[in-house]
Amino acid sequence: MKNVYKTYPNGVGAIFNLNLSIDRGDFVFIIGGSGSGKSTLIKMLYREEKPSRGEIILGGVNVGKLRNSKVYKLRRLIGVVFQDYKLLPKLTVYENVAFALEVTGVDSKEIRKRVIDVLTKVGLKHKAKEYPDKLSGGEQQRVAIARAVVNRPKILICDEPTGNLDSKISMEIMDILEKINKDFGTTVLMVTHDIDIVKQMKKRVLLLKEGRLEKDYKKGSFVDEKL
């Protein structure tokens, strides 16, 4: 990420001259108060927003230059997990996870195998036939994570994935994310405002303030920060 700026059409600046490099296989937290630009940053990574200036290279793709009609190619390289899960309500757990593979044209046998694998990994194989509204928040988030990683993406982007969950369930989610990071070598970028989690995980931490990178804590060096 080189000299990235983002100004919204209404003139509000969100990111100013951001330079950042994240290695493959890293686990990185992005923290900051409201309006610090962390959401904008992450939206630019999965190309929901375009940078106004500068260059973002993600897994070899120049995100800023990607045409709207080609965005799906980037989305297949990355997995995204949200605070509100974003599951398709009319599809079962199995179908929700399978959908991410179906759109890439994988054959049905392979889909079945991979979906069951990943649902086992997040501990929800027994709920494969349930609809999302029958699941608890933690379970829904686990389905969302399963969907995000079933493609074996190089990068997993998480936008406050524990925002709606209590601390015990949050730690379960963090365990799953760490397992994915270790087992698949997936790079994990996670936006959060839950400082307890950040302290416990002892990972690299990027602190954003008013659209600028305020501090870059090396792995394990983060102590405390008031947001």
């Binding site: 965005v71 799906y72 190619k73 989305r75 995204v80 991410a100």
Partner: peptide, 16 residues
């Protein structure tokens, strides 16, 4: 609308 947004998110092409 939300459903379409989610489809885009998981990498479905426009035609898909």
């Amino acid at each position: 609308k939300r459903e379409i947004g989610i489809m885009r998110l998981v990498g479905a092409s426009n035609s898909r």
